[in-house]
């Protein structure tokens, strides 16, 4: 049975190579087999038949950045839980209390961002929109 590290991970390496070959074959095949006809209209971005206006690389909602940042924060928390779960049988209640305190700390941050409205993706209603406009003026 595989006991050393290289032996354990060699199959994964092999599978990576296999995946690369299959993927390269799939992506390459379309260039080798299909016939190619190029013209200017065909090469424009698809927008249901309407001529595209401007570039697609436009600005988008800042919410997406916020979600990415939150993900990094909370996913690190989740990754901390994995080694904790593995040694849980030996440490028992001690481990539970330690992790409980840690999760409470994380959750207090979570409730803060919740109250701040970071997790609220709905369009703001007319009244708050007008209020914000007033403040900006």
């Amino acid at each position: 049975m595989p006991s050393t590290y290289p032996e354990q991970y060699f199959p994964i390496l092999l599978q990576v190579l296999l995946g690369v070959v299959v993927a390269a074959a799939l992506v390459g095949l379309s260039f080798l087999v299909g016939k190619r006809v190029k013209n200017k209209v065909k090469d424009t971005p698809y927008e249901c038949g309407v001529n595209p206006i401007g570039s697609a690389k436009e600005r988008f909602s800042v919410k997406f950045y916020l979600v990415a940042m939150l993900f990094i924060l909370f996913d690190i928390e989740a990754i901390f839980l994995y080694p904790w779960a593995v040694v849980y049988r030996d440490l028992k209640l001690f481990a539970f209390i330690e992790m409980f305190l840690f999760i409470i700390l994380i959750l207090s941050g979570f409730f803060y961002i919740w109250k701040k409205g970071v997790l609220d993706w709905q369009l703001e209603d007319e009244q708050t929109f007008q209020q914000k406009k007033q403040v900006l003026k």
């Binding site: 994964i12 296999l18 993927a23």
Partner: peptide, 16 residues
């Protein structure tokens, strides 16, 4: 071209 390549290569690796 990298995007479909990555998608299918990674999908095959995770089964290992």
């Amino acid at each position: 071209l990298l995007a479909p390549f990555l998608a299918v290569a990674l999908a095959l690796v995770s089964i290992s």
